[in-house]
Design a binder for these strands. Structure first.
Lengths: 159, 159
DNA sequence: AAATACTTGACTAAAATGCTAGGTTTTGTT
DNA sequence: AACAAAACCTAGCATTTTAGTCAAGTATTT
């Protein structure tokens, strides 16, 4: 289990989907604008998310992406592992011949540690995150900014 | 908190130190041979580990590195954060202006998640790892291989 | 003095990151 | 039927990070 910014972007995007679940399919363009992630990068990420069946896609006008199931049924770990390559280029891959045709000292250790982190992140769902104060606060600001962008007449209201 | 192979190498090396604590200062050359990590890379890692005061070094013949304190007092998290740059090149660094001069959706979230993983890895000490079966087993094999290397007359004993 | 141990800095190949550009399909709306 | 909005695909690019290597030191102890 690797923890990089890639997984973070994916979690951000999925969290955006969770927050706007009731608005029907969400376009990547929307997410791109709200979260400041480039459209093409989102396409990359969602290609994987779709293959892992974490999201459903609808093509054509009015289309977009939706969570494939309730936000409480999608763990942060699911999202992160979906976008992470599982290539395991490190020498302790699937095989255990990482050192002199034997198992290196941290082979078991690392997989175990990895498992525990995985389990931990399995315990946190997108639904959990949506319920958090900080997330709600930022989401509210983002929605406000969006409104500003669409209709400019009420731009002074929230200064 | 990032989890990469670099941190893993560091944990492996520190675990080696913990396993050979009673043998006095351990040279990087020893660790390099036992764990199959290049000497120069170890030097890089240990430079950081020393600066974080996780190890004590002794120069000169018979010198080497030792854990700076009991293996139960050194957490896996300590080791990983020591070798990881804290530069935070990602846009959500110390400042919270990651998106439109405001805080991005996962800013708080990610730091919180990161904190929880950190706490989790704080709960696992090198001492804990040493006590594990798998580690003991591999360590025994490594020591055996080492003996083989030094004295060849008893090479047939453990076949 | 010499062996041994550690330090420093420059360099590199490979991979990951994040983006750009330019498509093609699919599908609802006019 | 034509158009436009969206997903979806492919290729490539610039930059950074990773995982090291190499060379030339400095320091300490026997």
């Amino acid at each position: 289990m690797r923890l990089t910014t890639k997984g973070r972007y994916a979690v951000t995007a999925m969290l955006d989907l969770a927050l706007h679940y009731k608005d029907g399919p969400i376009t990547l363009a929307d997410i791109s604008q709200r979260q400041g992630i480039s459209l093409s990068y989102l396409e990359q990420l969602f290609s994987r998310l779709r293959k892992q069946e974490l999201v459903d896609s609808t093509r054509g006008p009015g289309g977009g992406y939706r969570l494939s199931r309730d936000s409480h049924q999608i763990a942060v770990a699911d999202v992160i592992t979906a976008v992470d390559e599982k290539v395991e280029t490190t020498r302790c891959g699937g095989l255990s011949n990482c050192q002199d045709d034997e198992q290196c000292l941290t082979h078991d250790l690392w997989t175990e540690l990895s498992t525990q982190i995985h389990d931990f992140l399995m315990g946190i769902s997108l639904g959990n995150l949506v319920e958090r104060q900080g997330v709600q606060k930022v989401a509210a600001r983002q929605e406000q900014a969006e409104t500003h962008f669409v209709t400019t007449e009420d731009a002074v209201v929230n200064s």
